[in-house]
């Protein structure tokens, strides 16, 4: 029997603040409720979204729900480098 135990992957979601238009589609798309609307405004004067906690599972739901091309990026953390 193989001994490999699949290591749990870690992900992190990043918002490019100035590209967010604050529609909140990502907030309702996120299955883990990570993303939240802030009370801050960005360069365009729009109230934007930020990740409020950890626990991203890297599903990409927020990325596909977001209508802006580069507002949301999801990264996979490579633990070996840590």
């Amino acid at each position: 029997m193989g001994q490999t135990i699949k290591k749990k992957k870690k992900f992190v979601v990043e918002i490019t603040v100035d590209e967010c238009k604050g529609c909140g589609r990502c907030v309702s798309a996120c299955p883990k409720g990570i993303l939240e609307m802030t009370t801050k405004v960005n360069m365009m004067g729009i109230v934007y979204v930020e990740p409020a906690k950890e626990g991203c599972v890297g599903c990409g739901a927020c990325f596909y729900a977001c209508p802006e091309p580069g507002a949301i990026s999801v990264y996979e953390i490579d633990e070996a480098d840590e």
């Binding site: 990409g60 091309p69 490579d78």
Partner: peptide, 26 residues
């Protein structure tokens, strides 16, 4: 800490939207 982009701006888009007039290009 190494990290790999899993979901990000698709490369089918221009990196900067230079064809769009005005100051907002992203």
């Amino acid at each position: 800490m190494g990290r790999k982009l899993k979901f990000g701006k698709p490369t089918g888009f221009f990196d900067v939207f230079d064809r769009r007039p005005g100051p907002i290009k992203k």
